[in-house]
Design a protein around this nucleic acid. Structure first.
Lengths: 196, 196
DNA sequence: CCTGTGCATTGATGTATGATAAGTAATATA
DNA sequence: TATATTACTTATCATACATCAATGCACAGG
């Protein structure tokens, strides 16, 4: 069974007849590594459910540097929620870190699903709250923790991503340079061989 | 008319009969400057609507340093959403920066209001989405901008808070020390007297 | 009126991380 | 297989910001 099907049936608890109705409203698509799904200035018309593979969203500053806002692997939704919800132009890029199969979810889909199913509405609510919780933790880390601590936290939270994602992207997510991350890793390696 | 009344009637678009029903479910309370409304480890049972005055939420790290997550002045809601929604112990302090009059909003209130009124449900949804947008902008700034830029952004976004809040709290919100903020301000003053 | 307490400023010094540059390793492309 | 690109590391130097300590205010309470 596809991940998206599982998502609707199990997580969002949508029953068979509604499921048949809803599944027609979404579109599946294969995205090649490096392909861009959203650019700054565009309105984010779709949220992307990751069937398999890996997406990321990021900004590019005046100096041309990328700053990664979010990674999304299997079963995650990547989107610019503000842009999609408020119909505003986005500040973000979204592209594929690996070859990825995605499900395109329109705002209409979400609205319809919410009307059809109270458990979908409920699940969507939980997803929003989770997003907020997650962002708040990240803000707190950025305010309070050193590069090393932030990296250790990343490893613990996303052991899978630590392996799949190139280091310079992790650095970008952490708000440091690839060189700094390299140093941090060296430090950590030393510490692990000579504990204390 | 009270701010909270305006909030329900105008913003959330609640009609008179429902309003009468709902207003009974909330509690008003005066909070003295410095009084603590939530501590880490407690579950956040109430969201605090600020009638007038000023609240803040913050964490305290192992070294005893405070890191301000949010300010909330008139018409804002301060809460630990994760804790309140998921019934989990909070990581945050919430206390009053000024003498403050708050409205205590329980999770039950929100659930009931959502059932009674679709426009309240809708407004609540907008509030969540706004929260996410706001946090995302902050994450992006923390990833990409210098202390100076972050401070300029703060001034532009919260000119009122810039005046009401002691500098060391602004520094804490920005993720720098009070000393650094003092220097940033000095720099900016120079630049303004000698443009270019 | 003095005096304590909290906040802002300033200076001296330290340190984590950035910038730049170069080298090596890994991967893709021809 | 050869060659070009991209990723990671290492070294040096530069800098933004932190830390520590001292001083100056303002304002509150005796």
């Amino acid at each position: 069974m596809q991940n998206f099907t599982k998502y609707l049936k199990t997580k969002a608890n949508i029953a068979e007849p509604e499921f048949e109705l809803l599944i027609k409203k979404v579109e599946f698509r294969n995205v090649e590594k490096g392909e861009v799904l959203l650019r700054p200035g565009e309105v984010c018309r779709h949220s992307f459910f990751v069937e398999n593979g890996l997406l990321r969203s990021y900004t590019v500053d005046d100096a041309g540097k990328e700053h990664i806002i979010q990674f999304g692997s299997e079963n995650w939704i990547v989107s610019d929620r503000s842009s999609a919800f408020f119909n505003e132009p986005s500040d973000l890029f979204i592209d594929a870190v690996e070859d990825t199969r995605v499900v395109l979810i329109s705002s209409d889909f979400i609205n319809e699903a919410s009307e059809i199913s109270s458990s979908f509405r409920n699940y969507n609510q939980i997803a929003l709250q989770n997003h907020i919780r997650h962002q708040q933790k990240r803000i707190n880390l950025l305010l309070s923790a050193s590069a090393e601590l932030r990296y250790m936290n990343f490893i613990k939270l996303y052991p899978d991503l630590t392996l799949r994602v190139p280091q310079w992207m992790i650095a970008s997510y952490l708000g440091i340079t690839p060189e700094s991350l390299s140093r941090v890793r060296k430090e950590l390696a030393h510490k692990n061989f000579k504990p204390n």
